[in-house]
Simulated assay, not measured.
Amino acid sequence: MRPAWTILLPALFLCIGFAPAVAQSGGDRGIRPDDPNPPAFLATSFDLTTMTSPSPPDDGAAQEAVQGPVDAQGPLPPDADRERRYASLGSRIGAAKWETIGLFAYITATQAYWTDGTTHFHFKDEGWFGRNTNNLGIDKLTHAFNAYLFAEFLGARMARKTQDRARAAAPAGLLSIGLMLYGEMWDAHKKDSGFSVQDVIFNTGGATFSVLRHTVPGLEEKLDFRLLMMPNSQVYTFKGKRHYEQQRFLLSLELAGFQGLRDSPLRFIELQIGYRGKNFTNAERAAGIRPERDIFFGVGLNVKQLFFRDSRSRLGRAIGSGLNYFQLPYTAVHVH
């Protein structure tokens, strides 16, 4: 069994998410006895014995039915009403409450599946990107990327209701940090792991990048944070050091995001910088092979612009959106 207090933080986030928006009511029209121009529903006389409405005016104009007092300002436009409904931080978080619950369940299930043995809460200094670290820092970038994906997903879901992606960025980032911290609490009780301050810092960094991407004008169209999974002899390794060796994390600058290049041939070009590590499995270290860490630069093909720029199908739009986060193998040339 897991200590009960490890779920308090995500529970707090979920409670905030259910906080309702505070509605501000409009002012009602006041009625004075001495008003020389009383509302129509008071000026009109009714025959209570027959409960019939009076005859129409002599000019033949249809008399408008009155349903009750109307706000002096009239009904709010849809955009203004939506802005009022999602004015508070709690109401914007609540717009993605079910998605947050789903991610919470996903983290719980995966952490429970991969946990072999538990112990008391403890810290572990995992280092950063040194050759003597367990995974050369690839695991730190994995934490940043997962937090980034959570923030992107939750922000997109909030924006479906609020119609304001920029204002959804910060609450989505906070939820992502909270969910990743919940996962770190599981690590804090694993015998082969521990609570890592380095992981928390990179979780925060990944979520923060998502916030910046949607609040700095033009950044979303220009800069992507992506994962490139290079196939190995197993095609895909699900866990362990060989899994980390497959991962390359990169920032991709899309020339199509610049206004002057959107309709030029340069829109198919991306400039990339990334990080990878290799030769750090236990067998390779035991054989005396020196672990390698590489910062690489490259030029990539903007597959989204090439095939999915004006896609009208739901599948095409989904694939195009996914290419903002995942780099297809063999679609770029990198120099290590």
Rank of each mutant, 00 (worst) to 15 (best):
V197L: 10
T281V: 06
Q67M: 09
G178W: 01
Y244S: 08
G27R: 07
F18G: 06
P36A: 03
T119S: 11
A286D: 13
R242W: 12
G94H: 04
T133N: 08
N232C: 07
M180A: 06
L227C: 07
G178E: 02
A172G: 01
L136S: 01
A207Y: 06
V235W: 13
I107E: 09
S88E: 07
P56V: 10
F308N: 05
V335L: 14
P69I: 11
F202G: 05
D35A: 04
L14H: 15
F202V: 07
G102N: 00
R157S: 06
I93G: 01
E64H: 06
P10R: 13
F238H: 15
V211M: 02
T133R: 02
H122Q: 14
A166G: 08
P20V: 04
Q111R: 08
P56F: 13
Q198P: 05
L219G: 02
I269G: 08
Y325Q: 02
R167I: 00
T100V: 09
L154G: 00
R267F: 08
V216P: 03
K241I: 08
N203C: 03
E184N: 09
L219E: 03
F153N: 01
T281Q: 05
V335K: 13
F104L: 15
I319L: 15
L255I: 04
G316W: 14
A72S: 10
H334G: 13
E220N: 12
S53V: 07
V216I: 04
I295Q: 03
L174M: 13
F46P: 03
L228C: 11
A172F: 01
T44Q: 11
A159D: 10
T204N: 10
M185D: 06
G320Y: 07
G322N: 12
F150I: 02
R267Q: 09
D187T: 08
R2F: 10
A23W: 11
T52L: 13
G137P: 03
G300A: 15
G173W: 00
M158K: 03
G274E: 01
P33K: 04
G300R: 14
N134V: 13
P33I: 10
L315N: 10
P231E: 14
F258G: 11
G155E: 00
G260F: 11
T133D: 10
A105M: 12
Q259D: 12
G300S: 15
W128G: 01
P171Q: 00
I7V: 14
L12A: 10
N134Q: 11
Q163K: 14
Y330M: 14
S25C: 07
R165F: 00
Q111N: 14
Q259R: 14
K161A: 06
I93V: 09
G26C: 07
G206W: 11
L48Y: 08
R276F: 02
L228S: 11
L261K: 06
L175Q: 07
F202Y: 14
F308G: 04
N37R: 08
A207P: 09
A283N: 10
L141F: 15
G26Y: 05
L89A: 12
A105L: 15
A65C: 02
V303L: 15
P75E: 04
S193L: 09
D164C: 00
Y113P: 02
I107S: 07
A109P: 01
A166Q: 03
F249C: 11
S252K: 04
T204C: 13
G173D: 01
G94M: 07
Y148N: 11
G74R: 04
R165P: 01
K190L: 10
D116R: 13
A283E: 13
Y330G: 02
T52R: 12
